[in-house]
Design a protein around this nucleic acid. Structure first.
Lengths: 142, 142
DNA sequence: GAATTTTACTTGCGACTTGCAAGTTATCTC
DNA sequence: GAGATAACTTGCAAGTCGCAAGTAAAATTC
């Protein structure tokens, strides 16, 4: 893979800068998997319902790492495996992702359980703290 | 333009469904222009710093309208002009966009004025109410 | 009222990106 | 040592993007 030559920045607008990192149909799904599910490895991401293809996944893992959203850690006991984890910057997307889930669930017919949407909506601080716990655990133990 | 045949849904995950509407490098910039700037017309969007090209802009205006994010209103006094406005669903993205701005400004060197970031961060409810006022005004008077 | 300008597009085309299938390499299990 | 598994890479056709140029309808200028 060689997507390292990043295209020139279009502007310094914060929304634009976020789009230059996350503005495609796949990147945020990888973040989602890392944030809310147990998916941590290449094959796990492939198994997600949306069926990303291997070349795109490979490319996105490199660019997300380059942009400081994720980090890759070699598995000590099985050297074929690489574990991916969210960095602090990557986990920092949680409040935004929470609002996105609430918006989407409100305007579409989604698979999000209403109880969960309700908690994100009305107990955002608690929800965030719980998410952070999960994230911290994934960073060491797994 | 004929981008109306929407590709099949990849999943019912709320994040995925949001990405199927907004998951590209341009759509959210149009939402930004409508939400935070006075840009309302085709030529206005072209003048934004990121320099979208005319065919992409034309396509995105159609798809955003199809997905209920924006609405197009003919100008009564100049029939060449079309005004675009955010729908309630489109304006509903404001909380998510606010969190995105805060995240991006925190992790990058952006053009967002620190005072504004501070207000969005610490007075989110007030900020949202002010945004809604602006939005309501844009819907009738302009 | 004819010529020019403005607005909102569409078209053409080369370059880049995506999606699918197949192949590769290193490592682990039996 | 044989076969499976994890994480990629490669090839190729199809689709999307970005730029430049063109168009049509309506408004403005002279």
């Amino acid at each position: 893979m060689s997507p390292l030559p990043k295209p020139p920045q279009r502007s310094s607008c914060p929304i634009n800068m976020a789009l230059e990192i996350l503005g495609d149909r796949w990147s945020l799904l990888i973040v989602r998997d890392l944030m809310f599910t147990g998916r941590r490895q290449f094959g796990d991401f492939l198994n997600a319902e949306e069926k990303i293809s291997t070349n795109i996944l490979s490319n996105r893992l490199v660019t997300l790492a380059r942009d400081g959203i994720i980090e890759s850690l070699p598995d000590a006991s099985d050297r074929r495996r690489t574990h991916y984890v969210l960095t602090e910057k990557g986990f920092g997307l949680a409040p935004m992702v929470g609002k996105l889930i609430v918006w989407s669930a409100h305007h579409h017919d989604t698979a999000a359980p209403p109880a969960v949407v309700d908690i994100i909506t009305h107990h955002q601080t608690d929800w965030l703290a719980a998410m952070r716990e999960l994230w911290l655990k994934s960073r060491d133990g797994d």
